[in-house]
């Protein structure tokens, strides 16, 4: 599989960008094609399908956090809409995942 996004485990509800995916890119998901509303940097995640608030986020088939709001299919999944079930994540100004440090 050499598409722009990787499915790491069949149970996952997120996909991982294998390279920077530009804003407006059309991505074919099981539920239909979505258009990215913002660029997704390499190794960031998008929702594989719509995710309800309070749902466990699965990556590698394992829980990596909990949705703090409803997330639409194809939306960026990151510190702005999921939280740790353990220790809160410390971030700088990039609450939405964007900062000068994001690899382009």
């Amino acid at each position: 599989m050499t598409g722009p996004f990787l499915l790491l485990h069949p149970n996952d509800n997120v996909l991982v960008a294998r390279a920077l995916a530009p804003e407006g890119l059309e991505v074919a998901l099981e539920g239909g094609t979505v258009r990215l509303s913002r660029p997704i940097p390499m190794a960031h995640k998008i929702a594989r399908h719509a995710i309800d608030e309070g749902t466990r986020i699965l990556k590698y088939g394992m829980p990596i956090g909990i949705a703090t709001q409803a997330i639409a299919a194809g939306e960026h999944v990151h510190v702005h809409n999921i939280r740790s079930a353990y220790t809160a994540t410390h971030v700088l100004q990039d609450a939405d995942g964007v900062s000068a440090g994001v690899s382009q």
């Binding site: 991982v16 960008a17 940097p41 390499m42 190794a43 960031h44 995640k45 986020i57 990556k59 590698y60 394992m62 829980p63 990596i64 956090g65 999944v77 990151h78 510190v79 999921i82 939280r83 740790s84 079930a85 353990y86 220790t87 809160a88 994540t89 410390h90 971030v91 700088l92 990039d94 995942g97 900062s99 440090g101 994001v102 690899s103």
Partner: peptide, 22 residues
């Protein structure tokens, strides 16, 4: 704080357990 630096988030990691699994 978890064992989690700001650059981890910029690089696409959202939580300590996501970093842990990796």
């Amino acid at each position: 704080y978890g064992s989690f630096a700001a650059g981890n988030a910029a690089g696409g990691l959202s939580t300590i357990e996501e970093k842990s699994l990796g």
